[in-house]
Design a protein around this nucleic acid. Structure first.
Lengths: 150, 150
DNA sequence: CAGTGATCGTTATGCGCATAACGTTATGCC
DNA sequence: GGCATAACGTTATGCGCATAACGATCACTG
């Protein structure tokens, strides 16, 4: 790939990441949340109570990030942490009733964000975009860190 | 858009942003750089010496971020800051000779990163991907923060 | 049963990025 | 010229995310 195409690709990813995150942050702020929190809440909503390790894996981030996010969500009353029954090292995180209400709003917000995100597309259909993005995301997710050109 | 598609879209963007950034960070670390620095260096390389304000606009970030990045790049000897001739408030940032050498390596790195990024694609062509991403990036860049669904 | 290694979670630290508040300089209007 | 307003850059602060180092617990082996 020549430099111009590479730069277009990398630069577009950078721009998309920044702007999308900024928009998400603006919307989440109305609920007192920050970017990343929605991933935890939606995961808990989709897959039920789970340990912080599982949350880290599901949210594509590292355990220390989960520690802080869960602490904030707990302080906000959206989530509760109880020691795991069979493993004294682990905590099981679950949604509170208040958390379940918040999830409803987060889901609406999440749909609004997606609508806004695709609102300005010029020549790309939403289906094309989603397919391309999910393909890329899956590719990056599974890839070993040393793959590709060296 | 239903929630599942919205979540696929938003989640894919989040994953792509995280993984792409992590890969970029790993590569840039070999040059003693951090994510974001490459954007500044490539901008200076492409558009010549410019003020920090212009860098902020070109790199899609805010002036305080530029202050710190430029400071680090200057400490690393890749960049020099001189007071602007016609405006005592502004600094003009330019590449040093060492910075120009670094740009060469950053460009190679940037191409490698792009190659790795598309290496695992399943059903999407590189051209489709780049077109979709640049379309989306341009859309997000120009959009007013309040547009779309409310 | 004792000891070794892996695993869960936390703390410490560092960077990118953001917003808010501030000092300094430039520019517009009168 | 004098003054209000805007613009450039910096500092302060806060969050997400990362890695590295640590204590506590589990699981596996001799």
């Amino acid at each position: 790939m020549d430099f111009e195409r590479a730069d277009a690709l990398n630069g577009a990813i950078r721009t998309i990441a920044l702007k999308h995150r900024a928009r998400a942050a603006a919307k989440l702020a109305e609920l007192g949340l920050h970017p990343g929190h929605e991933a935890v809440l939606l995961l808990l909503s989709a897959k039920g109570p789970q340990t912080q390790r599982q949350l880290a894996a599901g949210a594509d981030c590292e355990p220390p990030s989960i520690t802080l996010m869960v602490r904030k969500l707990e302080a906000g009353g959206l989530v509760s942490r109880v020691p795991a029954a069979r493993d004294a090292r682990a905590n099981v995180v679950r949604l509170t009733d208040e958390g379940r209400e918040a999830v409803v709003r987060v889901k609406e917000l999440w749909r609004d964000l997606a609508d806004e995100t695709v609102a300005g597309l010029a020549g790309t259909s939403v289906d094309q975009l989603i397919e391309a993005l999910t393909d890329l995301a899956r590719s990056l997710q599974g890839q070993a860190p040393g793959a590709g050109a060296s």
